[in-house]
Amino acid sequence: MTPTRIFWLAAKIVAALWMAAAGYAIFFIAPDERTMHEIQRIFYMHVASAWTAGIAFLVVAVAGLLYLVKRDPRYDWAAISAAESGLAFTTVVLVTGPIWAKPIWGIWWTWDPRLTWTFVLWLMYIAYLLIGTLVEDRNRHGVLRAVYGLFAFINVPIVWFSIRWWRGQHPSPVVAGAEPGSRLDPTMWAVLFFTWGATLALFAVLMRGRYRLEAIRGATEELRQQAEDSAPAHSDAPGLSGADTPVRASLI
């Protein structure tokens, strides 16, 4: 076992234990909320997942930009992995939100800025992940994905502002920019950050797993390409011929 493998095995164990500890903290350490009681406990996982998803989509945009500049497929693989993991966390946000909203607001869903915004985000990253299955030329869909990741990311603040000016129902911020009266209880605060740490660890492990899958796929693709390139030369020099000249057919 290489040191990296050992590191990631340890990371998996840490993420699993941390997640379990976060579950314990949410249900047994966090104090009872004054008006909403038990249902408020969904807040920790909801907010922590939302923050983690935001970080994941930032990774997608940065990796996409690096791919456009350097054209190294590893950045593209990193972007796909981050997008897929980020989408999982966004799904958690979209599922936990309505579960909380039904008893509190009396409805599952409303077209509030934050809800609409999260929904658009979710749609965009599903589209992002569909690119790979619909574009055959690997070289091309890397560029398309990178550009789309960038557009999706800059779109996030625009959609956010555009809907914010016209409607609103989602609870106000309780952490950054909170009003003096609505500060979080210190224990709640600690549980929230502890849960966020757990989701971040889970994100790292998920992204790493997805990245390895993508890297194996890339290597398989490369080998297939080499096999195709060397096939015509098969008769006079069997074996390695062509393997040292993996020149891609290009129009220019």
């Binding site: 658009v120 749609l123 965009m124 589209a127 569909l130 690119i131 619909l134 574009v135 055959e136 030329d137 091309r140 869909h141 560029v143 398309l144 550009v147 789309y148 557009f151 999706a152 779109n155 625009i158 959609v159 555009s162 809907i163 016209w166």
Partner: peptide, 30 residues
Amino acid sequence: IFSALTAQARMRELLLPLLLLPILTPILIA
């Protein structure tokens, strides 16, 4: 931009609206 990038895709007739419409949300709203 997305027309240029999806020109070679399979099912591009579906892919282009799928990619473009969410990106155009702020334009639609404003």
